[in-house]
Structure formats: C-alpha cells, structure tokens
Write a protein that binds this DNA or RNA. Sequence first.
DNA 1: CGTACGGATGCTAGCATCCGTACGGTGCGCTAGT
Length: 480
Amino acid sequence: MELEQALPKYFGYTTFRPGQKEVIEAILQEKDVIALLPTGMGKSLCYQLSGYILQKPVLIVSPLLSLMQDQVEELKRFGEKRVVALNSFLTITEKRYALHFLEQYRFIFTSPEMLLQPQVQEKLSQIKLGLIVVDEAHCISQWGFDFRPDYLRIGQWFSQVSRPPVLALSATATEKVVKDISKTLSLNNPFEFMYDVDRPNIHLGRVTFEDKADKAQWILQHIKKTAGPGILYLSSRKRAEQYCEVLIQAGIRTAAYHAGYGAEDRQFIQQQFIDGELDWIVATNAFGMGINKPDIRQIIHETMPANVENYMQEIGRAGRDGQPAIAILLYSEGDEELAKFVVTGDLPTSGHVERYQELLNQRLQPSQMLKNGELSETAFRVLNFWLQQESVEQVKARLNQLALEKYRAVDEMKKINQTKDCIRAQLVGYFGQKLQKKPENCCENCGIHYDEINKVRLEEERKIEMIPWESRLKQLLMGN
DNA sequence: CGTACGGATGCTAGCATCCGTACGGTGCGCTAGT
C-alpha cells in the first residue's frame, strides 16, 4: 500500500509532518532508523502507521511506566484495543495472560528491565515482530552507563537475536549520543533523520547573581509579576519543597514535584498542572518526560542542569503551542560545583570496585555491601553489570572516564551559559547544527523583550473573562 | 566539592572565628513487613 493512501486510511490525515514519511519509508525497507523529532511533531505516528502497514506486532521500549500508560490510553481512545503495557503494574495473572497472547497485540509497550526477563525473552523469540521502537532513546546514553544498565543489555540482546528493524526516537541528541545509541543498540548502518533542534519561539534568558541570596528574591518577584504556567527547576528535593512553600504563601498556585513523592501524588500533581489548576511546578529533573502541555510559558532554572542535553529537554517543554515562551537560566558563581557533585556522587569508587571483586573471589555475596549501606542500590547494579564483563582495572578506568565526561558536560553547560555571543547559536551548535535564522526575540545576549510573555498572559486572561456565566457557575459548583 | 548551619571557643561581654556535621537526581521490578 502506498504511504499516501495509508495515512488517511488509518489516521484521517492527508499530509505527513516533516520526517514522518522518510522514517516510515526506511522502516518499510527494513532499515534501522534513528529519528530526532521534536516532541509534539508526531513521533508516535511513525511506528503506529508502520505497524498497521506491516500487519505485525510493534514492540515499544519505554523508559517510564507513566509514559507507557499514557500511550496505551491514547491508542485505546483512538479505538485500538490490541495494546498492552507489559510492566509491573500487571498482576501475575494479567502478565501471564498478556504473555500467552502476546502475538495478538498490535502494540506492546514495555520497560528495558521487563524486556530482559527470561520469560519475556523466551516468548519474544517465538513471535514475529514487525518493528522494535526505542522511545526516548537518549536515555540509553544518559542512563545506561551509570543508572539503568539494562538499557545497555537490550543492545546486547539485539546483537544476539534475529530481529526486525529498530527505530530509535528522541527529541534531543548530540552527535555523541546518536553514536552511543547506534553502538549500544548494535544498529546496522542506520538511516538518520535529524530535525532542527532550535525552538525559535522560546526566548533564552539568563540572569547572573553576585550574591546567591538575591536569587530567591528575584524568583519570587519574577513569578509574581509574570505569566505561568511554568516550571521552576531546582537541583535538590529539599529546595524544591522550600521554594514551593514560599510561592504558595505568595498566593501562587504551586506544587512541588520530585522522586521522593509516591507515584499517586506525582500523577495527581501532574494532572492538576495539565488541567490548569496549578500555575507553577517546582521540581527536580524528575518532572517533565512525557508531559504534553502545550501552553507552558516559562521554564526557570534556579541552578544549571548537569548537561546541555538535559537543559534542551527541560526548556523544550515550553511553548509547544508555538506561542512565545521564555526559558531563564539563573547563575551564581559555583553553581556548577553542585551539579558536578550530584552527577558523580553516586558512582562507585575504585575502593568499591575492588571490594566487590574481593567478595566475589571469596565466594561471598557482594550484596552485603548494600545491606550495610556501603553502596547505593544504583551503584550496586552498575558494578554488577560492568564486573560481569570487564576486569577490575577496566571497570575502574571506565568509571573514572565516566566521571570525567560528566564533569566536562557540566563545563559545556557553563560555557554556553556564560557566552558573550548568541546563546541560541551556541546551543544549536552543541547539537552539531547551525542556526538557520535568528528569531526576533532570541536570547539574553541578542536582546529579549520580556514583555512578550505578558502579552500572552493578558490574552489568556481575556479568554477567561469571556467564559459564559453558565459554565462559570458550573465550575463553582463543581468546586474548581 | 562546596555551602549552610549550629554550637563551642576565644578574647574580654557581646561579637568574631573556628570546627564539625549534614546535605546534595534521575526508575525499573520485587519482596518483606506493616
């Protein structure tokens, strides 16, 4: 079937968005594909349409349970019932059922961890998949090496089995991350589609403080007098909670969000924000992946993220509706030190590597290092992964190298923040692209008119004024 | 690695300095114990 006929048949659209056609054509020619498309540009259509044309199950590896649930719901809303999220939300019975009938699903979502379970692997070896999708594929590079090693194991599995084409999807990846993806997934000369990383409607602000203490004042004043919805990113859970409290006292509808809260609370807060019941989310980097709220107007970073990729991901959540939005990066001297500590703080040390191996040599359980608090859960798993395949010396060298790379990444972030040239050009350059066109409201160094944002806010307020009285009354009665 | 904060000390009554301590992100799946 021709692609142009398939699109209206399955989705009702008449034209493709940039990249979709190229990506799907490559998949249908059984090529591996790495596609960098901005969120909201119809990434999921690439594998959905391919699945329908191929008439075979599509396996989607997703980093977050909540993301899987969202996508499953979306497909079901769309009328597709042959969808399953194979993850720990399922009871034993449900899981057994899903596995037994796995080939009858059209779209199978799962996590790297679940994918590697022997029973899942065994079932997958018996069925014929049409396509494997690795969603948010930058996670391989960002998390695989020191946080979720199972991201590297799926690559090892790919290289051992005969498999259908693999489609790796991401919104932001540097040349190095693309290389990491291609290498760890053992992709075979992949077709690469790169969309512009620049987001011209997001103005790039920067404010530098001599005195750290002035930051808090600035943030409070700024949020009071400008428009939400917005996300304020902090680099610690505690500070997120503190800022949240201050903003609530100032009468701003705010909630804090970090990984210390339970899944239900997090779900609830996220939903309130999406529904417009909260204006600001004060969060660690736990917040954001999979958030599809079109009208986020501001992203403020109280301290710089640990790398430029994270920065791009985080500011990229603003202005998905195409309306003006602003990202402001605050800086005071020494901010990079906290970032450096945080990204390397949980890496196993040389001492840990030696002790782990020593316990193995003595035929003792290395997990005792977990129980006595010597190692964190994460560090333990990372050590376990690397020592399975490399010598003590190699692992030590690898971990040192990893720490150095992480330091370098922080320095790159600082460099872009401190540049005297166009911040946007630097940012785009970091992703190996050249800035095509400077928007009118570009960045701090080119000059920004901050009041653009307030214009949007005024229009929003006017819209609220125009809600007819019946629905206002209903809102009041419903307690909204 | 750097900062914030509390308490003790030091030299002369309230304030400066010093020292020790605590704190710092991201998620999956599974299990034991409430």
